[in-house]
Design a protein around this nucleic acid. Structure first.
Lengths: 335, 335
DNA sequence: TTGAAAGCGCTACCAT
DNA sequence: ATGGTAGCGCTTTCAA
């Protein structure tokens, strides 16, 4: 193992000069720097991580708390995880992945042992225990999603309420007066209450204000249940001209396939909007216009929020990202 | 931050005694141990990770190299990642997640800086660069999957060849003489050549030996392409009584749905076997008999292989797990 | 612009 | 059965 001493000797300088040259924390003459760079390259020197952690103030590791719920949509989950890793690497941080058994104790473990500089929290629910854990430990942390009590916490999320209103507006602008909704499974709603309810409430309010008829159903992950919901929509909202999906990709596929089998043409008969979609709506059989879930942006924001705290900032707060609309042609004007 | 010194003072012993009491590396009297345990509990002492890494021989962190390919099946990927984390935690190790940009440099970075004790490698392809990286660095590592040149490496995988043969045997035993196959996308085959080809070759050999007719198709991730493949099977193998899926869940769903729409009943008209399935075949609309991909077992084996090397063992080799058959009733005897 | 040296908190060796 | 202490490799004063 190559140490800083060997680099110093090879470059003919002291170890502190090597350290400063590498950290850039003080001015080094061009010639000295060149000699050090050369020695580093020749010896293929890599500073020892443990030593840096011990001597320095930071570990350059972020913990990622990403517990997997029973009914989680794994692709979305994976996208969040990947996005956090990419964002962290952009800040020269590595990511330590905490899974199920570690919901609360895991965070304490890695924070208390100074294994990580901060924590990024995914899959946040309204009554999330991790909020209290973070508050108590005083750890640098950022939540992707909004817990019930956000006091003292840094959170980032899509503005789901605004996304709900924007969904109605997009369809209303095209003349739609009767909109069906397929939402996340009811079990989801109960637990993650946060974002789903924010979306649904705002959506309903906007419909009411605009005098638009609407019916929202929350089928389970069972395919038959999903087809049943599609039929119910057709029956309960006979003059439905638009459909909003606020659910995961497989449900969208199943419901659309069923509608097609029932003779409903998309988008000729029914316009469709994929709201807060975490998947690529362009890869579906019928590309769907969408208000995407900006998960890269959310994860990037969370990582930056956490890193900022590591760097000493103390400015907690909730950041709500504005929804954006992407037209893929699945919304047609009502004749 | 609570240090070992404070614990020692509170317990009225030396720091070395505290260290030994916690590591269990030497005998401690019951009374002393009790005093130390109490002090640890009262002070909520957590050993500093950096200090342990520096002073000790290990970091208790494993790197997980899990690059995401363009056409990857995210749920499967996530299951592997989760399984590795669970297995690592069972050995008291944490997992550092390396993603796309880190394919090769990431492994070098974390290994050379002694950030991790070892590496678990996922998504291994026949010409995987990471094999050479590991060989050269001499890092403790275990591959989930089998690269082309396994010299000096520790690998673990399902015995795909045996799985191919077992698939034929299961169906042949039920009297089937004409078996269709829907495999992974052709793009997959080209890259991951390893396991897919091993399965396919053994499957064909076994069919040939048993005088069974077979036709294998490798539709892309496009739904229309998958339906076309199903039709091709029906046309190219008119007396087909059995179908083997060696592909991912969404393809299975799409093909099965299309067959149903074509009036083919499963399993009455066509028996179905899900080979090397990484998903829950019991949650499908028609539960499928399966030879599951034992991914938890694979990941557990890999973690154990890596940990064993960290502990000094030098016994590289390829472990092939025997396939198992799980009957869910989707294979019917041919009348 | 550079160097010397004091820790960082722990493990493990050498004593007793 | 327990204690003293020398490092582990680095960062960061303090000095020059």
């Amino acid at each position: 193992m190559v140490t800083i001493h060997e680099v110093a000797k090879a470059a003919g300088v002291s170890i502190s000069t090597v350290s400063y040259a590498l950290s850039g924390k003080r001015a080094i003459s061009a010639t000295t720097r060149a000699r050090i760079d050369q020695a580093v390259a020749e010896l293929d020197y890599r500073p020892n991580a443990g030593a840096r952690m011990l001597a320095g103030a930071r570990t350059n590791i972020l913990a990622l708390s990403a517990p997997i719920r029973e009914d989680a949509h794994l692709p979305t989950h994976m996208r969040f995880v990947t996005a956090v890793v990419e964002a962290a690497r952009a800040h020269d941080d590595d990511v330590l992945l905490l899974a199920r058994d570690d919901e609360v104790t895991g965070i304490r473990r890695v924070v208390d042992s100074s294994l990580v500089d901060g924590v990024v929290v995914l899959g946040v629910s309204t009554d999330d225990e991790r909020a209290e854990v973070v508050r108590r430990s005083g750890a640098a942390a950022a939540f992707v999603g909004v817990p019930g009590d956000t006091a003292g916490l840094t959170c980032i999320d899509l503005d789901f309420a605004e996304a709900g209103r924007a969904s109605v507006r997009q369809l209303a602008a095209a003349g739609h007066r009767s909109i069906g909704v397929i939402g996340h499974p009811a079990t989801y709603v109960e637990r993650h209450t946060g974002f789903i309810r924010r979306f649904a409430d705002a959506f309903e309010d906007e419909c009411r204000a605009a005098g638009i008829a609407t019916l929202a159903l929350y089928p389970s992950l069972d395919r038959a249940d999903q087809r049943r919901a599609a039929d119910e929509l057709l029956a309960g909202l006979p003059d439905m001209t638009a459909l909003v999906f606020h659910c995961n990709e497989p449900v969208v596929e199943a419901v659309l396939a069923h509608l097609v089998s029932r003779g409903v043409r998309v988008p000729e008969d029914v316009s469709v909007l994929a709201a807060c979609a975490s998947y690529d709506t362009d890869a579906l059989e019928v590309p769907l216009s969408t208000i995407p879930l900006p998960l890269e942006e959310m994860c990037r924001g969370a990582v930056e929020g956490a890193v900022r705290q590591v760097d000493g900032a103390r400015e907690p707060g909730v950041t709500l990202l504005p929804p954006r609309f992407i037209d893929r042609g699945s919304i047609r004007p009502v004749p």
